[in-house]
Amino acid sequence: MTLFRTVLQPVALVTAVLLSLAGPARAQHAGYRTLTIAGDAPTTVALFYPTAVADRVVPMGPWLPVVAPGAPVSDAKLKGLILISHGTGGTELNHHDLGTRLARDGYLVAAVRHAGDNWKDRSLVTSGRYFSERPLQISRVLDALLASPEWGPRIPTERIGAVGHSAGGYSVLALVGAQADAQRSARHCRTVQDDPGYCSLAKGSAVTEATGVQAAPAASAPPPDARPVSVPDRRIRAVVAMAPMAVVFTPESLAAVTVPVRVIVAEQDVVLNSRYHGGYVVASLARTQASTVAGAGHFAFMAQPTFPLPSAAGDAAANPVGFDRVAFLPELANQVAGFFADQWH
């Protein structure tokens, strides 16, 4: 497939972002802070939350989030807590536009930078603990927020959800009971020919900043657990999985998932063939909401970067010919916000 390199100068992208926010004056804006969760591998978290302080475009590397840094949280009761998990090699800002939208709707949003699987550090990939540790990091963030004197009393514990893209999609599905069998990846890539994006990365290729697919452990990595990995967190009541990496899940465990799940896949995903990943999840779950984004590539669910982000899976800033990511992202945010609102109306 031919991809074109998105050429959006920062000024033009700022204009597009501001136009997407145009309309009646908003009662709530998006506050922004960062939080570090202590541990053997400290975890950085971006917090987006409702505030009365006007937000603005604040450039952060390749990203242009519209936030009010350090602003006080609104006095209004939080609608809930949404945890966001990025794809492998990514950052806590990969989905900043979704985070700010949910914050303006009244949610506290915690976007995790996965320790050992981010643009600075990929050590978790070859640790032999990838399938268990990645979702457990999200649970630890949840632990910290619920224990926080500031946030804990504000969070309605019956309204905790999670959103994940690619390897993040794997992570949030694992949290609602899907079990990973590491041997499924090897068997899959020995027997299929039409999932080359996933399988080329699964051979141990280097995966760098902002990529969206988990690479299987390299040959030199410690052997993975021979039993399926089970790390459910019953506090999470609903999830959205966007182009999830899912071939490693056992069908029996997917069929046993009982929480509401929304799966969104990309029509032109050349990194993860939906037949074996997102489509496999939809076919295996007892009940789900599912949709396919016409013309979209694997990275369509990430905020649009202001400059190219090359990776082993392709340029995370590029889009298939004819697909307008900037125009699509507000609609994606509407779908995600609507899904959670429907669960907790």
Results as ranks from 00 to 15, higher is better:
residue 7 V to D: 08
residue 7 V to M: 05
residue 8 L to C: 05
residue 14 V to R: 08
residue 14 V to H: 08
residue 19 L to G: 03
residue 19 L to Q: 08
residue 25 A to D: 12
residue 25 A to W: 07
residue 28 Q to R: 15
residue 39 G to P: 09
residue 40 D to K: 13
residue 40 D to M: 14
residue 48 F to D: 11
residue 54 A to D: 13
residue 54 A to T: 10
residue 58 V to M: 01
residue 62 P to A: 06
residue 64 L to S: 00
residue 65 P to R: 01
residue 69 P to H: 00
residue 71 A to N: 07
residue 73 V to M: 14
residue 74 S to C: 13
residue 80 G to N: 04
residue 89 G to Y: 13
residue 89 G to Q: 10
residue 90 G to R: 05
residue 92 E to W: 04
residue 92 E to D: 09
residue 94 N to P: 05
residue 98 L to W: 14
residue 101 R to E: 13
residue 101 R to G: 04
residue 108 L to Y: 00
residue 110 A to R: 05
residue 111 A to N: 02
residue 114 H to Q: 12
residue 116 G to E: 13
residue 124 L to K: 09
residue 126 T to M: 12
residue 126 T to N: 11
residue 133 E to A: 09
residue 137 Q to H: 04
residue 146 L to S: 07
residue 146 L to P: 11
residue 149 P to H: 04
residue 149 P to D: 01
residue 150 E to V: 10
residue 155 I to R: 10
residue 158 E to L: 15
residue 159 R to W: 11
residue 163 V to H: 02
residue 164 G to S: 00
residue 167 A to H: 11
residue 170 Y to G: 06
residue 171 S to P: 13
residue 172 V to G: 15
residue 177 G to D: 03
residue 178 A to Y: 03
residue 181 D to N: 15
residue 182 A to E: 08
residue 186 A to E: 07
residue 189 C to K: 02
residue 200 S to E: 07
residue 200 S to F: 04
residue 200 S to H: 02
residue 204 G to I: 01
residue 208 T to C: 14
residue 219 A to N: 07
residue 221 A to C: 13
residue 222 P to S: 11
residue 225 D to K: 04
residue 225 D to T: 11
residue 227 R to I: 02
residue 232 P to K: 09
residue 235 R to S: 02
residue 238 A to T: 04
residue 240 V to W: 00
residue 244 P to L: 08
residue 246 A to W: 04
residue 251 P to W: 08
residue 252 E to F: 08
residue 257 V to P: 01
residue 264 I to M: 13
residue 265 V to K: 00
residue 267 E to C: 10
residue 268 Q to S: 10
residue 269 D to V: 12
residue 272 L to K: 03
residue 275 R to I: 10
residue 281 V to E: 09
residue 285 L to Q: 09
residue 286 A to K: 06
residue 287 R to N: 15
residue 294 A to Y: 11
residue 297 G to W: 02
residue 298 H to C: 08
residue 300 A to Y: 00
residue 300 A to H: 00
residue 310 P to K: 09
residue 313 A to C: 05
residue 315 D to C: 08
residue 315 D to G: 12
residue 319 N to K: 09
residue 323 F to V: 06
residue 323 F to Y: 13
residue 324 D to Q: 04
residue 326 V to W: 00
residue 331 E to F: 15
residue 337 A to Q: 05
residue 337 A to R: 01
residue 343 Q to G: 12
residue 344 W to F: 14
